[in-house]
Design a binder for these strands. Structure first.
Lengths: 144, 144
DNA sequence: CTACTATTTCAAGTTAACTTGAGGTCAAGG
DNA sequence: CCTTGACCTCAAGTTAACTTGAAATAGTAG
């Protein structure tokens, strides 16, 4: 089992075969070769997939993730980019924290309408002022 | 300026007119009436839009946001749902925090390859184990 | 009253990240 | 050798959240 085929990779990584092909097409992973038509992967693909999953879960687009790898397959370290992304995550987290507090409060608030509740209004004001609005990226739900 | 038209709302809220129409179609906002063909909005629409922006920025889908309002336009308080969402935000924040730490570390790490760095590998392991993977919702980039 | 221009509706297009389906291929088991 | 089933390719479909464009309409300035 030195060079797993696509089914094996799918099984062990949890990533569907269709997605693996898609990722290969996008340059996110590479197959080590073929046996007949069939792709064979290097075992390192699992680490690569873990990294991709982590990055995806943190808000990177596939485009950005692809740019994280050099053509030779190594991780390219763009310190600038990494730091910028970390800052962005910080901002996102602060935004989420505000929303969470708002929700927690709303769940127990006694005001006749949330729009009359000072705590809620503070949140709204922040949102309206754009203090909360991320310019380029935003956390949201995935399809499915 | 008691009942702003769509252009006025767009100008003051920063939300494009096309989006306002779209939101109305989706039941996220309502127009107070028409002058001829043209929509007129109640001033309260601004608060509503702020709330929508906040919720969107926190990972709610338009579907979910729509369900936050009762038919009469008031905020519907489903304490259960609010608390659940708050918990979810907490989990998301923890995930983002891990990634941020990973990025910050990667930006200064001296290891020859990130894949050889213990800190980075811990992150990968967590990602691979699914500890980090959110089942239903994930933070990611918005289209442009 | 006429012309101008913003607004309207409705359908179709866009983007990201995949999934699905049709039709073809080939390695392995019997 | 032949069948079978997993894989392959390529095109098209899917979803969310909007945007864009065409053709119609109607307040408003003159």
């Amino acid at each position: 089992m030195k060079f797993p085929d696509i089914a094996e990779v799918a099984r062990r990584s949890g990533v569907p075969a269709s997605t693996l092909r898609f990722y290969e097409e996008k340059g996110l992973i590479v197959s080590a070769g073929r046996r007949g038509l069939r792709r064979l992967f290097e075992p390192a693909v699992f680490e690569r997939l873990a990294l991709i999953a982590l990055a995806r879960a943190s808000g990177f687009t596939l485009e950005e993730i692809a740019r994280m790898f050099s053509p030779d397959g190594r991780v390219r370290i763009d310190r600038q980019m990494l730091a910028a992304k970390a800052d962005e995550l910080d901002r996102t987290m602060r935004r989420l924290g505000a929303m969470r507090d708002g929700l927690r409060h709303a769940a127990v608030c006694r005001a006749p309408s949330h729009l009359e509740c000072p705590t809620f209004r503070r949140l709204l004001a922040a949102a309206a002022s754009g203090a909360i609005r991320a310019p380029e990226s935003t956390a949201h739900k995935r399809r499915r």
